[in-house]
């Protein structure tokens, strides 16, 4: 309740100063490096990890385009719908992350291990440490902040733009003084970088939650418990859990 109060407070004050809230669309390129993830699997021998690295390491990097729509109050992150390049179409993933900073609520719609979940809960800001490093991404000066994902046990490095007054960001990360334009999960296992920042009015339907969605309703605690269990059983069963869980 306290947090909710604070958030409303912040947003109100924010809107007060910026008569026009920033709205826009950020396109991200998400690259996942499987050999790096393989190298973290405890049940594989060094030889097997090296073999994977030698064979696939130079041609690694599964690329996907993601998109984040935001207005002052809400944001929605999902995969960019793209035309097929080779005439082959895979099944579109069930995935989006919706955040409402006004009501301090989020909805995460995601397929985990072949099952679709509908996670609805309040926003809980990750704990950030702000570092003394700057770089530019798409013309915006960004500052570095680090955090940890305790469920997946990942280190998170985020680069946020002070000039984009929006607390949101890609994947499950937000809560910095500016929009996150780059996210590095676990020392480069996955890198999500903004490839385009387009400040323009965003149609409300782009931020809307689709009416027809099916998924098992869970809250954050249930979701985290389910994920922890999946990861531990997978590792125990000597399978890479991240074939079926978003890294």
């Amino acid at each position: 309740m306290k947090r909710l109060f604070i958030f409303i407070f912040f947003l109100l004050s924010h809107n007060y100063l910026h008569a026009q809230a920033q709205e826009g669309v950020v396109t991200y390129e998400r690259t996942q490096y499987y050999t790096k993830i393989i190298a973290r699997l405890t049940f594989l021998s060094q030889e097997e990890k090296d073999r994977a690295k030698m064979t696939w390491g130079n041609d690694d990097g599964w690329k996907q385009k993601m998109v984040l729509y935001f207005n002052g109050k809400e944001s929605k992150y999902e995969a960019l719908k793209e035309d097929s390049e080779d005439g082959w179409s895979g099944r579109p993933e069930d995935f989006f992350i919706y955040r409402n900073f006004e009501t301090e609520k989020k909805i995460e719609f995601e397929t985990v291990s072949g099952k679709t979940y509908f996670l609805e809960d309040s926003l809980i800001t990750p704990k950030w440490q702000v570092m003394n490093k700057i770089k530019e991404i798409q013309g915006y000066m960004c500052m570095m902040a680090v955090s940890k994902d305790p469920v997946k046990n990942q280190t998170i490095t985020a680069w946020f733009a002070n000039d984009l007054v929006m607390q949101s960001g890609p994947e499950k990360f937000f809560g910095l003084p500016g929009l996150i334009l780059e996210l590095d999960i676990n020392d480069g296992d996955v890198i999500i970088t903004a490839s385009k920042v387009d400040l323009k009015p965003v149609k409300p339907e782009l931020l809307a939650i689709p009416k027809k969605i099916k998924g098992k309703k869970v809250n954050q605690v249930q979701y985290d418990a389910m994920l922890t269990d999946l990861i531990t059983t997978s590792i125990k069963g000597r399978r890479n859990p991240f074939w079926s869980i978003r890294y």
């Binding site: 100063l17 704990k127 440490q129 003084p177």
Partner: peptide, 21 residues
């Protein structure tokens, strides 16, 4: 419009932030 952040000195963790008028 400068971003002002309050961190804890021990680990630089972000406690509070805002902007100048």
């Amino acid at each position: 419009e400068a971003t002002v952040m309050l961190l804890l000195p021990k680990d630089s963790s972000l406690v509070n932030f805002g902007r100048t008028d």
